[in-house]
Write a protein that binds this DNA or RNA. Structure first.
Length: 477
RNA sequence: GGCGCUAUCGUCUAACGGUUAGGACGGAGCCCUCUCAAGGCUUAAAUACGGGUUCGAUUCCCGUUAGCGCUACCA
């Protein structure tokens, strides 16, 4: 059975790069009918926060991504410690009594890698046991087998054959002097215990993998398959960080701006992966069907945001595409909270009427605030009366057009086709172009020139509101 | 510094030795049109550099450069 995991450490909000890692794991599991496991890597007690954990759950819930099994590393420390001691007992690791940070200067010394603290590797068993029994603090370090083998190798499902000389791998820690396992130890012990078949994670772990292979072997288990993902980076080439790049790296920012979860997932998938055909907008099922590790590429992908445009234009475009293809009823329900947040007196029935008129005019759900204000507001926001004057016309023309409109709308059947016919006839009567007739009316009822098509707008607004707004507009001229 | 990974339009990407180097976003222009959108059409825009291998390199190899990652008793 294929088993994959997503193992975030709860030390920050859910990052978009992490979300993408989850998605790729999830897609791989769904495609292959495997199990998706969520494991919280919370061994670093000091840096963990509840907010961060909440943010991870919130984000995944919003993205509508589910998992089959759930674990917390902090509840499994016994397993980790037992595994570390097993490796120690086999002689594949040793106690290092060097005080913390004592070797930092030597470690950063140029000329080569730091490999181990002098004297500690060769400590005799009895000496090591004696000092440990005496209560002297120590870390447990893996004894990288530099004498017995030249290199460590594995096949990465994305990056291909990988190998590294053991002479370039330092004796890394398994257990801290506090007895708490390190990330490497905890992660591998859990991956082995949970029988993870494929580890799909960020490329920042590619070089750690050599250490992990060593740990799996020391544990006597077959290492899982590995697939590393290219990283998501900022336009300046640096890695995405909240400190430097702000809210654009947080999943909740996209939710709050009105991205559709499916659209956002779709966007993230296209960063570092391609279905290798011309498809870009894809449904979730299409993504599942198309997903394969072969389609993952090897170079980092830039999330193209900027100061004046906080969202990648392609993400926005994809969102607009998904908005357009969402059934009006569904979209309306998603739009409603944004309309209410904008202070509109919106209800489900009204929203449903408005939705088709703005559906192909908004890119983000929050755009409903700017695109549909005049449908919900009792009073139109102030606008310039000059806007009422039509192309190649003057205020007199605006006035006659609006007065005619008042007359026509007072009597008209308030439905698209009737309004269309009546207003066109009105323009013909006044001997002005339809555009010259429609623009003053549009501005009068919407408060601006850029708006949805006129007749359906009038229909949704209703006779009373239209007449009242046109009367006011005439007074402004 | 050491080690590892990467390098195609501004951005996301396709082309698994032979293409006029394709698509998408964004940009520009045109069309459609009651405005705004949407849609349609057109257009500018890329193989980092230098060597090989080959009849032929975006593609394979080497070097250079650049970027990123790891180099913690963080994950």
């Amino acid at each position: 059975m294929l088993r994959v995991r997503f193992a975030p450490s709860p030390t920050g909000y859910l990052h978009i790069g992490s979300a993408r890692t989850f998605i790729f794991n999830w897609l791989f599991a769904r495609h292959n009918r495997g199990v998706m496991i969520l494991r919280i890597d919370d061994t670093d007690v000091e840096r963990n926060t509840q907010e961060s954990l909440d943010s991870i759950f919130d984000g995944l819930k919003w993205l509508d991504l589910e998992w089959g099994e759930f674990y917390r590393q902090s509840e499994r420390v016994e397993l980790h410690a037992r595994s570390a001691n097993e490796i120690l007992a086999k002689g594949l690791a040793y106690r290092d009594f060097t005080p913390a940070h004592a070797g930092d200067e030597e470690k950063s010394h140029p000329g080569g890698a730091w490999l181990f603290n002098p004297g500690m590797r060769e400590l005799s068993q009895s000496e090591s046991d004696r000092r440990a029994a005496a209560g002297e603090p120590f870390v447990v370090r893996f004894r990288v087998p530099r004498e017995s083998r030249g290199e460590v190798a594995f096949t990465d499902l994305v990056y291909g054959e990988q190998s590294k000389a053991t002479a370039d791998i330092e004796d890394f820690a398994l257990l801290r002097s506090s007895g708490v396992p390190t990330y490497h130890m905890a992660s591998c012990a859990d991956d082995a215990d949970l029988r993870i078949s494929h580890i799909i994670r960020g490329q920042d772990h590619l070089t750690n993998t050599f250490k992990h292979v060593l740990i799996f072997e020391a544990l006597g288990v077959q290492p899982p398959c590995f697939a590393h993902l290219p990283l998501l980076i900022a336009p300046d080439g640096s890695k995405l960080s909240k400190r430097k790049h702000g809210p654009v790296v947080s999943v909740t920012t996209y939710r709050d701006a009105g991205f559709l979860p499916h659209a956002f997932v779709n966007f993230l998938c296209l960063l570092g992966w391609s279905p290798k055909d011309y498809r870009e907008q894809m449904t979730r099922q299409e993504l599942i069907d198309a997903f394969s590790l072969d389609g993952v590429n090897r170079s980092n992908a830039t999330v193209n945001f900027s100061e004046d445009d906080p969202f990648d234009p392609k993400a926005v475009w994809l969102n607009a595409e998904h908005i357009r293809t969402t059934p009006a009823g569904d979209l309306s329900a998603q739009l409603l909270p944004f309309a209410c947040a904008a202070g509109f007196r919106a209800d489900a029935a009204k929203m449903l009427h408005v939705t088709p008129l703005i559906q192909e005019r908004i890119k983000l759900l929050r755009d409903v605030a700017a695109a549909a204000d005049f449908f919900f507001l009792e009073e139109l926001p102030p606008y310039d009366a000059a806007e009422l004057i039509p192309q190649k016309g003057d205020s007199a023309m605006a006035r006659t057009a609006l007065e005619a409109a008042l007359r026509i709308l007072a009597a008209a059947d308030f439905r698209h086709d009737s309004l269309d016919a009546a207003l066109r006839a009105g323009a013909q009567e006044l001997k002005i172009k339809t555009g010259q007739m429609f623009q003053p009316i549009r501005v009068a009822v919407c408060g601006r020139k850029a708006a949805p098509p006129l007749f359906e707008t009038l229909e949704v607004l209703g006779r009373e509101t239209c007449l009242r707004r046109i009367e006011r507009a005439i007074q402004m001229l």
